[in-house]
C-alpha cells in the first residue's frame, strides 16, 4: 500500500489492507480510482465482491496506449450497499496481449471480454465465448487499435468518386457550394 492510503474512504480500508502495491485515488464523491499490477486484479475484484459488497461489474474498458505498447484495462465495480464506484486500472503488455478472464467472479465480464477481444485483440484466458459478435464479416486487424487508420483503410479499399449533381452546380452558380 502506498502513501496515499490515508485518503482511502473508511469502508474500503479494511479490504485494501490485505493488498500490497495498490495506489488509491479518491476522484470525488462516490468515485475511487485504484491502480494495481495486473496479477493482483482478480484478487482485488474477489475481495471487493466478497467483503465490500461490490457485486455489480458495471463495465470493463480498454484503452490503447501505443507509446508504451500497453493496454490499460479498467474494471468498474459498483456497490449497492456503500453506493460507490471503484475503477480498478491495470496495464498489460500489448504483446502478447493476454489476460485472465474474471468471468468466474463477475458473469457480465463475458460480454465485455468478448467485445474487447473483438475490438482490441486482447485474449482473455478462461472467457466463455470469444467468438466474433459484432464484426462477423470483418477479417482485418482489431479496428479499435490506434494503429488502425480508418481514413487510410477507406482510401485503400474504396474508390473516391466526384459528386457534382446539377442542384449543387445551381447552388455554386449563386455563389454557394461546398468549400474544399
Amino acid at each position: 500500500m502506498t502513501s496515499q492510503r490515508a485518503s482511502v474512504p473508511a469502508q474500503l480500508d479494511h479490504i485494501l489492507h490485505e493488498m500490497s502495491e495498490v495506489r488509491v485515488t479518491p476522484k470525488g464523491e462516490r468515485r475511487v480510482r485504484v491502480d494495481l499490477a495486473a496479477d493482483r486484479l482478480p484478487t482485488l475484484l474477489q475481495l471487493l465482491k466478497g467483503h465490500g459488497g461490490f457485486l455489480h461489474l458495471s463495465s470493463i474498458s480498454c484503452v490503447d496506449w501505443p507509446e508504451t505498447d500497453e493496454f490499460e484495462l479498467v474494471y468498474h465495480v459498483w456497490s449497492y450497499e456503500s453506493k460507490m464506484l471503484i475503477s480498478a486500472h491495470t496495464l498489460i503488455a500489448k504483446s502478447p496481449g493476454r489476460f485472465v478472464s474474471v468471468y468466474d467472479i463477475h458473469a457480465p465480464a463475458g460480454f465485455y471480454e468478448r467485445d474487447i477481444h473483438e475490438m482490441y485483440g486482447v485474449h482473455f484466458e478462461g472467457s466463455p465465448n470469444l467468438n466474433k459478435f459484432i464484426l462477423t464479416s470483418w477479417h482485418g486487424p482489431p479496428p479499435m487499435l490506434k494503429s488502425f487508420d480508418t481514413r487510410a483503410y477507406v482510401d485503400e479499399t474504396y474508390a473516391w468518386r466526384d459528386y457534382n449533381p446539377q442542384w449543387l452546380k445551381d447552388i455554386a452558380a449563386k455563389g454557394g457550394g461546398i468549400e474544399e
Binding site: S58, A107, P108
Partner: peptide, 29 residues
C-alpha cells in the same frame, strides 16, 4: 444504467470513449 467512459490525453479530440449501454447485459447474455 447507461455509462460513458471518457479518456482524454489533453488533446482536442477524445482519446477513448466507451459506451456502456444497459442492453449490453439484458439484450445478450
Amino acid at each position: 444504467e447507461l455509462a460513458f467512459f471518457a479518456v482524454s490525453n489533453g488533446g482536442p479530440k477524445p482519446w477513448r470513449i466507451q459506451v456502456r449501454g444497459p442492453s449490453q447485459m439484458h439484450g445478450v447474455q
